[in-house]
């Protein structure tokens, strides 16, 4: 009597090409569409994730912040290494991040940044590690990938879009592009079956929060003086 196919598949570790493979504990991104596209249903931990985008301000952190906020409120600690600009405290607090759990590390030399990254990955107390590496070589990434295996952290590196053409030891590579009011998310590499078409994620943008459109640009200083009456003044 032949065993039903489903039973065989359950008993033997057979990888099926159709589904993305679950391979490590994951952290929900809080974006259902993105969770579905990621193996295991979220940001993978203990491996490298690369977020590839060319300039800041396209909503690239909006992708990461909900997961980071959830971690910090669970009492987990987060490190940001070599951010390209000054992170603003009120903005992060508004995004739900518990600031007491976040440490910022700024470095000048690239060697220092690599050293610091390894130290953070070796520590057991950091549960999410976000680093910005405009330039990093394959061997350096490889070394950090090995260090990441020993940690249980979500490790995400921001790198330029062009890096997608180079090979990388990252388990997950996600390319980000602005797409009108949304963010085009293309999963360039993941474990398991390759991803199909890019996702168009509707992310929260500041003009939605403000809830009103801009007034026409004042033509001159006189026009500005006229409108002054109607403006909210915070003083």
């Amino acid at each position: 009597m032949a065993a039903p196919l489903e039973d065989i598949l359950r008993q033997h570790p057979v990888w099926r090409g159709g589904a993305p493979a679950a391979f490590c504990p994951v952290l929900s991104t809080t974006y259902p569409d993105l969770d579905r596209a990621l193996p295991g249903g979220g940001w993978p931990t203990g491996v490298l994730t690369e977020l590839l985008c060319n300039h800041e301000g396209i909503g690239e952190l909006t992708l990461a912040l909900p997961a980071l906020a959830a971690l910090t409120w669970a009492g987990k600690r987060v490190v940001w290494l070599a951010p390209p600009h000054l992170p603003d405290a009120p903005a992060l607090a508004a995004a739900g991040v518990d600031l007491a759990q976040l440490a910022i590390v700024r470095t000048v030399a690239r060697r220092d940044a690599l050293w610091a990254a390894e130290q953070v990955l070796r520590a057991k107390s950091c549960h999410a590690f976000i680093a910005w590496f405009p330039r990093i070589a394959y061997e350096e990434l490889r070394r950090l990938a090995v260090a990441a295996e020993g940690s249980q952290a979500w490790v995400a590196f921001f790198r330029p879009r062009q890096a997608a053409a180079e090979s990388s030891p990252a388990a997950l590579r996600v390319a980000l592009e602005p797409d009108g009011d949304a963010l085009a998310v293309h999963i360039a590499k993941r474990r398991g079956a390759p991803a199909a078409a890019p996702l168009r994620l509707r992310i929260k943008r500041p003009f939605h929060a403000l809830g009103r459109t801009a007034l026409p640009r004042p033509a001159d200083a006189v026009a500005r003086a006229d409108r002054r009456m109607g403006l909210p003044v915070h003083a």
Partner: peptide, 28 residues
């Protein structure tokens, strides 16, 4: 904060009037 705040804060840098499109505002 009463309005939206950006995560990246820059050193205030002057830009030309043609270099951007206004989307929302103002907040004084």
């Amino acid at each position: 904060a009463p309005g939206p705040r950006p995560v990246w804060l820059l050193e205030a840098k002057r830009i030309g009037e043609q270099g951007f499109t206004l989307l929302a505002g103002p907040e004084r």
